[in-house]
Design a protein around this nucleic acid. Structure first.
Length: 154
DNA sequence: GACGATAGCCCTT
DNA sequence: AAGGGCTATCGTC
C-alpha cells in the first residue's frame, strides 16, 4: 500500500498537521513549527480539517484505516467516533458503551489513536479533570475550547 | 507479571 | 474542600 501526505498549518494549535492517506485515511500527525513547510491540500480530509480549525462544527465522515489495531482498540476508536461535536464523555462511560470495565485499557487504546481529531479522542475526559492526551494536554484543551465556543454559537 | 490518557473510597489537613 | 494513598479492574506488551 502506498501513501500520500498532505500538510496544513493550524494556527490555533500552532502545529503543522500531516495527513497521511491511501485509499483510506491512515494517520494524522502533529508537527511543531520550526522549519518552514509547504502546505499541500489534495484530500477531502484536509479540506475538512481546515474547516474544522476555522471553527465549523463539522462531522467527519471519512473512511479510516484502523484494521491493523487489536479488536479492543478498534472497538474503542469506533465508539469514540460517535461522540458528537462539542460533547464529551468519560473514560468509564466509553468503557461501559463497549461492554467493558477496563477503564484504563480504554485510555491506553485512545493513546494509540492514529487519527486524532477525526477520531475525536480529545472528547474523552476523566470523570474529574481532563485526562491525558498523547500530543500534550494543551492541545487537548485547545481543541475542547474551540469546540465549546462553536457549539455555543448554534 | 507490570503498567496505564481511571475511578472510588477513606483518610488527613 | 482538597489532596494523597490504596485498590479494583482488564487489555497490552
Amino acid at each position: 500500500m502506498k501513501y500520500n501526505t498532505d500538510v496544513i498549518f493550524s494556527k490555533i494549535l500552532d502545529r503543522y498537521i500531516g495527513i497521511e492517506y491511501g485509499t483510506k485515511l491512515r494517520s494524522i500527525r502533529f508537527v511543531r513549527p520550526g522549519k518552514q513547510r509547504m502546505e499541500k491540500k489534495t484530500h477531502d480530509a484536509t479540506n475538512e480539517l481546515e474547516r474544522y480549525f476555522d471553527g465549523e462544527a463539522i462531522d467527519f465522515s471519512l473512511d479510516v484505516d484502523i484494521s491493523y489495531l487489536s479488536p479492543f482498540e478498534q472497538k474503542v476508536l469506533m465508539e469514540t467516533r460517535k461522540i458528537k461535536y462539542g460533547k464529551t464523555i468519560t473514560y468509564s462511560e466509553l468503557a461501559e458503551k463497549i461492554g467493558s470495565r477496563a477503564v484504563r485499557a480504554v485510555g491506553n487504546a485512545l493513546g494509540k489513536n492514529p487519527i486524532p481529531i477525526i477520531i475525536p479522542c480529545h472528547r474523552v475526559v476523566a470523570k474529574k479533570g481532563i485526562g491525558g492526551y498523547s500530543e500534550g494536554i494543551d492541545i487537548k484543551t485547545r481543541l475542547l475550547e474551540l469546540e465549546q465556543v462553536n457549539a455555543n454559537n448554534l
